[in-house]
């Protein structure tokens, strides 16, 4: 999607992830007897045909409300969930084109940092083992070198190496976030997926962790997919922003352009709702309604029930992600020339 394919470190093509709950016998039976359609399997389209390409060294922000599939997409990329459909290319190769060795290298190169460090760190393990286990298991270091290696990684993320024998509960929230980052860095990844990694932190600690991310990005030439619902944070650190709504990408744009001139009505709504420092009570113009259930997504454009510009066409036809400028894509029927309403430049 961006530039030429050869430049992309990671490329997603039509990636979908569906979670299916099969109807049980009782449901099928009642459906047959009563004749209503409830006997069908329940399908959640968590991620619905997402195309995305991420270049080396890029920081991409992935933004959306809870339930929009942003975390699922992150998990598909890291290989925690297999995708239901679509092709993922790592350095130009799909998984089936890779040798076993290459596949292994890809898994190591893509690492994830989770939202809640307390539930992603083993409470019964010392920090030394949490950070040192993976590189040892993958043969990146020898057993004798664990201590010096762990100390080096801890220093890199701003943790005092003398704390390496401590357990996760002995650390503060900000330090735990750093342990999570250190664990991901320990296997020398190229690509990091950060799933709401700063959401649970206090503002002053959040600033420290964000600064750490930016430092690491420069020092280690890392590529980031930064998943967050906090547009303020995303605006600060990302080069490019991807907005998701109910499993679909609705807008992709370079950060500055997106915040200057959002194109999709949903993006516009989101931007107007970021809390900004203000010196007087401000007016809130909330987007109406809530994100619909992904079990029964609206037809056509998923956003049409909440969209102030919805037309008849939006109810039936799914808008495709179209290029609307250099490096800018948006999935909205309003961008088609004949549908442009007055005042929506």
């Amino acid at each position: 999607m961006t530039a030429s394919k050869s430049e992309a470190l990671l490329e997603l093509q039509g990636i979908s992830k569906r979670f299916v709950q099969r109807a049980d016998v009782a449901e099928k039976l009642t459906a047959k007897l009563t004749g209503n359609g409830k006997g069908a399997d329940r399908v959640v389209h968590a991620v619905d045909h997402v195309d995305l390409a991420i270049r080396r060294g890029e920081v991409v922000g992935l933004v959306g409300e809870s339930g929009c599939g942003k975390s699922t997409l992150g998990r598909v990329i890291t290989g925690i969930h297999p995708s239901t459909e679509g092709v993922m290319r790592w350095k130009g190769k799909t998984e089936s084109e890779m040798t076993g060795e290459e596949r292994h290298a890809m898994r190591l190169a893509v690492q994830m940092i989770f939202q809640d460090p307390m539930s992603s760190l083993n409470p019964r393990k010392q920090v030394r083992d949490i950070i040192g286990e993976a590189p040892l298991a993958h043969g990146l270091i020898k057993k004798d070198d664990i201590d010096s290696y762990v100390e080096q990684v801890m220093q890199r993320v701003g943790l005092d190496p003398t704390y390496k024998m401590r357990y996760p509960h002995q650390f503060s929230g900000g330090q735990r976030a750093r342990i999570g980052i250190a664990r991901a860095l320990a296997v020398q990844p190229e690509f990091l997926v950060c799933d709401e990694s700063v959401a649970a932190l206090d503002v002053s600690i959040q600033a420290q962790v964000i600064n750490l991310f930016m430092k690491l990005c420069h020092e280690l030439n890392l590529t980031f997919l930064f998943i967050s619902h906090d547009l303020g944070v995303v605006q600060h650190i990302s080069d490019r922003v991807v907005i998701m709504y109910l499993g679909r990408v609705v807008e992709v744009a370079p950060t500055e352009e997106l915040f200057k001139a959002p194109n999709h009505p949903y993006t516009k709504g989101l931007l107007s709702e970021i809390p900004r420092i203000a010196t007087q009570p401000r007016e809130f113009v909330p987007i109406k309604g809530e994100i619909p259930s992904p079990l029964h997504p609206p037809s056509g454009c998923h956003f049409h029930p909440r969209c102030p510009y919805a037309m008849d066409r939006c109810k039936t036809e799914r808008p495709v992600l179209k290029q609307i400028g250099t490096n800018r894509w948006s999935a909205c029927h309003l961008n088609d020339a004949d549908n442009k309403p007055a005042g929506n430049a």
């Binding site: 503002v203 002053s204 959040q206 600033a207 420290q208 964000i210 600064n211 930016m214 430092k215 303020g232 944070v233 605006q235 600060h236 650190i237 950060t255 500055e256 970021i274 900004r276 420092i277």
Partner: peptide, 14 residues
């Protein structure tokens, strides 16, 4: 330390 109070891409004041 609020991100929107900082120049974009520069380290946040902490």
């Amino acid at each position: 330390s609020v991100p929107s109070n900082n120049p974009r891409g520069k380290p946040l004041r902490q």
